[in-house]
Every structure is written in structure tokens, then in C-alpha cells.
Write a protein that binds this DNA or RNA. Structure first.
Length: 237
DNA sequence: AAAACGATTTTCT
DNA sequence: GAAAATCGTTTTA
């Protein structure tokens, strides 16, 4: 056994100066049990996604999104989701089987992407569920960054709060550098450069009505929003 | 071709 | 917490 003493070679003051803002916040995250994780680095396969959208929305909580970028690899834990289930769900963009250039990506087998833009340059990430005949998908509303440095570089937010990196659907798209060109991407295909991996940590999962769908009449109260309790990256509630 | 809208984000009190 | 910002998509004519 060799004696490890690499820390002694670096001046302590210098290290603190460079890494203080990041290190401080990460430490705070680790102190919160809801924000721990234990990833298992194998890609989730097609069968995982070929279930009803409400079930998939629950199963996705805690899973880890991986995306390969020229800047490096982005990793983040899914901490908040919502299920959207056409044709009957009035909150769903594909309600009543409405198929347009935007919504046609609902009709894909589970594990593919539907990315829509809203209110300017905000791109929201959805993962399809069930089969290509079932127009249903899970909206990713919030993630907890694991690769903070690269996500900070990508998102370019002015907010000093770490949570503002990814506590909203448009912010998640920003973290992952997504736009409409990623519509139809297959999360089960190695060549996509984007996939999900498992996380064996068990979380306390909260359930609520979906957010900002007041127009959906009787469907607005469906308990189809899922989130990790006490996780500071969840958007609300 | 023009107008209206939105599963939001950011900024400003 | 309220109000503004912002632009692709859909609707309307």
C-alpha cells in the first residue's frame, strides 16, 4: 500500500478560491437524503417504456438522464414528471387525436422524444409511453443536475440559485441542449447519444394534480404529477 | 398572411 | 408575487 498524499501538493487557499461556490452547494445537496442517488450504469431498454403513461411517469422518477455532448456528458436525475394521455385527456396536445406537425411525435413507440417549444425559446422534453398507437407521453418538469459544471455552461442563467438551473420543464430542455430537431429521438438506440439509466435509491414520491392546465376542465384535477418529496429541485409543491 | 395562444422563464417591485 | 418578455405553432380569414 502506498501512502496517498496528493492533497498536500496543492495550496489549500487556492483550491478553496476556485471551487468554493460549487463545492459548497453540492455539499448541501448531499446533506439532503432526498437528493442522494445510487446509479446503475446500464441503459434502460424498450420494455421499460412500453407501459401506460401514468405508470411510466412514476417509474421515471429517480431515473438518470444521460446525454453525450461535444462539451462532455450531461447527467441529471429526473425529480418531477407529468403524464399526458390522449385521445381523452383534454390537457394533452394530442387531445382527440389532433395530429399536427408539432404533435405527430406522440405516435411513436415508448422511449422516443416529443420536444415542443413554448413561450419563446423554451423547449420541453417529453418521453413517449406505450405503443405507437397510443398518443401518450411524460413531460419532464424538473431534474437534479449531477454534472453541474457542464450544465452551468450550457444553461447560461444569471440566477445565483442552483435550483434555477433545472426546476422547470423549459429549463430541463435547456440543460440538455434540446430543440425540435430532437423530436423522434430513440432513447433505446445507442447511436442517439441520449439514454436513461437506473438508480436503485428508493425515494418518497409525492403525487398531485398537474400544473398550469386550467383549460383542461375535468381533466385538470387528475393526480398525474409525480415528484420526489423534499427534493429542492422540484418546481413547486 | 395575420392574429392569437401557450404543459414558461425572467425580471422587477 | 406580479408583470413582462418572447417566438414557434396553430387558428382564422
Amino acid at each position: 500500500m502506498k501512502k496517498a498524499k496528493q492533497n498536500e501538493t496543492k495550496p489549500k487557499a487556492d483550491l478553496e478560491q476556485v471551487e468554493k461556490p460549487v463545492a459548497k452547494k453540492i455539499k448541501k445537496n448531499e446533506a439532503n437524503p432526498a437528493e442522494e442517488y445510487q446509479m446503475v450504469d446500464t441503459m434502460l431498454t424498450a420494455d421499460f417504456y412500453k407501459v401506460d403513461v401514468v405508470e411510466l411517469a412514476q417509474k421515471l422518477i429517480g431515473k438518470i438522464i444521460v446525454r453525450q455532448l461535444p462539451q462532455g456528458e450531461v447527467r441529471a436525475i429526473i425529480v418531477e414528471t407529468e403524464a399526458y394521455k390522449a385521445p381523452e385527456d383534454k390537457a394533452c396536445h394530442a387531445y382527440n387525436n389532433k395530429k399536427t406537425d408539432r404533435t405527430k411525435y406522440f405516435w411513436q413507440d415508448g422511449g422516443h422524444l416529443y420536444v415542443y417549444s413554448i413561450y419563446g425559446n423554451n423547449y420541453c422534453l417529453n418521453i413517449t409511453a406505450a405503443t405507437k398507437d397510443d398518443p401518450e407521453a411524460v413531460l419532464i418538469r424538473a431534474v437534479q443536475p449531477l454534472s453541474f459544471d457542464i450544465i452551468k455552461e450550457i444553461r447560461k442563467t444569471k440566477s445565483p440559485k442552483l435550483q434555477d438551473l433545472s426546476n422547470g420543464p423549459g429549463k430541463c430542455g435547456g440543460c440538455l441542449l434540446l430543440d425540435k430537431s430532437h423530436n423522434g429521438l430513440n432513447l433505446c438506440d445507442q447511436k442517439s447519444g441520449m439514454y436513461l439509466i437506473d438508480n436503485t435509491k428508493q425515494y418518497e414520491i409525492g403525487v398531485s394534480a398537474r400544473i398550469n392546465i386550467d383549460y383542461a376542465e375535468e381533466w385538470k384535477d387528475k393526480p398525474w404529477r409525480f415528484y420526489i418529496k423534499n427534493n429542492s429541485f422540484v418546481s413547486k409543491g
